[in-house]
């Protein structure tokens, strides 16, 4: 699914990712944990092609294709999805129009016809129900005036509608109460199958009680300093990150 080799990336002149390598097979869920400023969001941004995030060396292949050669929108249409740590408010642009344009772009890429407005409206309503968002949110501006939790659920709704091959969830759990957390986890778990892969970036073990990962990695100072199974998350919860940073240093 995703193969990252010796990735180095720079933001605003500062080297952030250093020789990062990571391989994800179809159907796997990888958790990435690590202290603030470790480079977790940077990894998600680099993978989705955000302007300003410069890859200085390394390779990334995504479903057998050279990911780094693709434009932002091509990556998305090809099936890469980033749930933003801080979803963006776009006043004046209706959530419904935005979602339909996104789904149509993906469908077109897959050789499918655009959905009729009627069918899409129906699908969007059903999906919003699944993430416990009132259908009224579909008419509002994209994330406009949404609470933190509503924004995160809107991200999960987009993920469900777009049916990506690789979903990167960047701290989707932070700022959520336990009910919202379970809604998010249920959404992810319902989408898990033998083809679809996930990178779950989180600060807390808590989310991983609900979304049980196949692998856990610790990112510190721009590289993966330790990898293990789901028990590694518990160890981190108990001991913090300090001992790992000491180990690396």
């Amino acid at each position: 699914m995703l193969d990252i080799r010796n990735l180095n990336a720079r933001v605003e002149g500062a080297d952030i990712l250093r020789n990062l390598s990571l391989s994800i097979k179809p159907g796997e869920v990888h958790a990435i944990m690590g202290p603030n400023g470790a480079g977790k969001s940077t990894l998600g941004n680099v993978l989705s092609g955000r302007p300003g995030y410069e890859v200085t060396s390394g390779e990334v292949s995504f479903r057998g294709k050279d990911l780094l050669a693709m434009e932002v929108e091509e990556r998305a249409r090809e099936g890469l999805f980033l749930a933003f740590q801080y979803p963006v408010e776009i006043p004046g642009v209706s959530n419904m129009e935005f979602l339909k344009a996104a789904v149509d772009a993906r469908r077109k890429h897959l050789g499918l016809e655009e959905m009729s407005s009627f069918d899409f409206m129906k699908l969007a309503r059903e999906t919003s129900k699944r993430v416990n968002l009132d259908a009224g949110f579909l008419k509002r501006g994209v994330n406009e005036g949404f609470s933190g939790g509503e924004k995160k659920r809107n991200e999960i709704m987009q993920m469900m509608l777009l049916e990506p091959s690789l979903c990167i969830l960047d701290e989707t759990d932070s700022g959520l109460d336990i009910d919202a957390l379970q809604v998010v986890a249920a959404g992810v778990n319902a989408m898990r199958d033998s083809e679809r892969s996930f990178i779950v970036v989180t600060h807390y073990q808590r989310l991983l009680d609900f979304i049980v990962p196949d692998h856990v990695h610790v990112l510190a100072a721009g590289r993966i300093v330790k990898s293990g199974g789901k028990e590694l998350a518990l160890e981190l919860e108990a001991k913090g990150y300090g001992w790992l940073e000491d180990e690396v240093a």
Partner: peptide, 12 residues
């Protein structure tokens, strides 16, 4: 906002 929309598959 441009990046957000493009990251959902919309062209520039």
């Amino acid at each position: 906002a441009m990046f957000y929309l493009r990251s959902r598959g919309l062209s520039e």
